[in-house]
Design a protein around this nucleic acid. Structure first.
Lengths: 334, 334
DNA sequence: TTAATTTGCGCAAACGTTTACGCATAATAA
DNA sequence: TTATTATGCGTAAACGTTTGCGCAAATTAA
């Protein structure tokens, strides 16, 4: 039951180590009959190639690293699912890690992956200044980030600006007149971009009105009081909320204030979290297929690692524009 | 920018490879001043130890494998989060993979991890017959499974039987008289155990009434028609549903049939998915803290890998009994 | 037949580490 | 002073693979 090495297999099959290796890998010249003998012996001994030894000489690990800000929620699990599926299809495994939303920890998390992976997918909603990832890690990187972060590494971006614009325009199209925005935390780039998309959409149409939140559900709930009073004052009649969880909190808060969504106030969220389909009223939102996005990330990484380094690829920018999921919270009656 | 090896570091610092290694690892005898010189050189060269070479000689990878049935939903992301946190705390990384709910794929998924991990956490809601995992992988295993699956490997189990019993008894305590059960697929052990818990709870109290579902939301929605008619016929007045997603589907289906939950019929789910808090009426459910469970799994695996193999540990059985989360769907009025 | 080519296989180097061992030199004890 | 012990460091083996090279035997061509 001690782990068998290729040496053991070779001995059992009465051949040299070299032949054993050739048989096991199906490369090089070897006669069918000895090959068979070797494979049989390997099975018999329950032989498993030593991963480290192999990666040592092959100079690759067949592992992709995936580094996420956090592991909360359906959002990330969808992404990971897409990555896993695509990675497996190209015979890669995934080494998963999160940096617990602590931007400072990102570097050390990346460092921990160095040498263990052939490439890395990292999701960074924050700004990172001057770090060139390939320096830090010595392996190709695909970043999942925002448009503004484009600086030499391939990036897959969700077009938050465009999405926010679509959201806001949807509210306008529904007949709402005074659209406000409930934003995310200022340090978050996605939050910024969504804010800008909102601003762009209402320009010359209605006055801007911005509430600042922090992406958490409670934050939406708490701001409801102020928003409710502004609605009653006739200042606003709809809100584009920077993410769904805040929108959910907001809707619950508005309920407490006896305001009706979407009658008294229209609400659109962002992210299209599954919960959105189940709340009452169901939540109109914008989102991309994260699983698809994960797949794309693997695809690009694969190219970077295994293809010839075409500069068009290494500088790639892939944009996913969020899709509008129209539900009840934004359907203005009458 | 070519990857520096320890040899390069040694050369740059004008010492032997052995000294470099000692300095880098902080073991063995070495003078502070040379150590400093070496560390400086290493930093300068951006040195990263080659993972494969290291694991080759150390005979360990510092990686734990995590193998899940699937990657859908908050359920798993919570588990992974717990595992990640605990693993990182003990300096392990995690290699994540799913077998796509295809029991047959489990073995090959395990095989793919062989040699790459020091231990593995595998979640198996299915029965697996005669497989002894340690044979298959040659590394310690912690299984997350059900009580019945206890066969020599350490297991962390959710006590589905007990949970189901608690759920059913809760409905009885609320004053519902004829409790039915909407079950999961028969091949699923958790489904079986929940069914048994239900049966045990109603024994000698009310007649059994079982609907068979398949854990999917649609399945709950579809069965609603039949359940609604049985409610109207006065045959049942509450359902313990084998998982939350079906319960959500069921509630929506019942709404269409103009039945009021919890007034006309009480509903309790299982799993305590986050969505449950947001549906209307909010869903009473049973669940364990999956993140905590993941933490526990790592803890045991750590013991198995690094501790002395105490037989009390290798045969460990840790039971998590689900906790009742009382919400609106089961609160009988008056 | 002989010459040329192909096939099957083994030898040994290389990948980048860690670590037991031994040998100088320095520090301490007598 | 000399004998003992402690310290700092280098040499080399070992970990388990893959693969270029070379050689004998078998096959094919002439």
């Amino acid at each position: 039951m001690e782990k068998a090495t290729i040496k053991d297999v070779a001995k059992a099959a009465n051949v040299s180590i070299a032949s054993a290796s050739r048989a096991l890998n199906g490369v090089g010249r070897i006669s069918p009959v000895t090959k068979d003998k070797i494979l049989r012996a390997a099975r018999e001994l329950n032989y498993v190639p030593h991963f480290g030894a192999r990666s040592l000489i092959r100079k690759k690990t067949d592992i992709f690293g995936v580094l996420l800000p956090d592991l909360y929620g359906e959002f990330f699990s969808e992404l990971v699912r897409g990555v896993d599926t695509a990675a497996r299809a190209s015979n890669y495994q995934i080494l998963l890690s999160s940096y617990h939303n602590d931007a400072k920890e990102t570097k050390s998390a990346i460092a921990a992956m160095r040498g263990r992976v052939d490439g890395i997918i990292v999701m960074t909603p924050y700004e990172f200044g001057e770090i060139t990832y390939s320096d830090v890690i010595g392996a190709p990187i695909v970043q999942i980030s925002s448009l503004n972060n484009h600086g030499g590494t391939p990036i897959i971006a969700i077009d938050n600006f465009q999405g926010a614009k679509i959201a806001t325009e949807h509210l306008l199209k529904q007949g709402y007149k005074n659209i406000a925005h409930l934003s995310g935390p200022k340090v978050n780039m996605e939050a910024k971009e969504r804010l800008n998309g909102y601003l762009d959409a209402i320009k010359n149409i209605c006055p801007e009105k911005i509430y600042e939140g922090d992406f958490r559900e409670e934050s939406g709930f708490e701001i409801a009081e102020q928003i409710a009073s502004d609605v009653k004052a006739g200042i606003i009649d709809a809100v584009f909320v920077a993410n769904d969880m805040m929108a959910v909190g907001l809707i619950n808060g508005l309920k407490e204030k006896k305001l009706k969504v979407p009658d008294d106030i229209g609400v659109v969220g962002f992210d299209n979290v599954p919960i959105g389909r189940y709340v009452t009223p169901s939540l109109t939102s914008l989102g991309v297929d994260m699983s698809q996005l994960g797949k794309k990330a693997v695809e690009i990484l694969n190219l970077l690692v295994n293809g010839k380094p075409n500069s068009a690829d290494t500088n790639k920018l892939v944009v996913f524009t969020p899709h509008l999921f129209e539900r009840e919270s934004s359907i203005k009656p009458e």
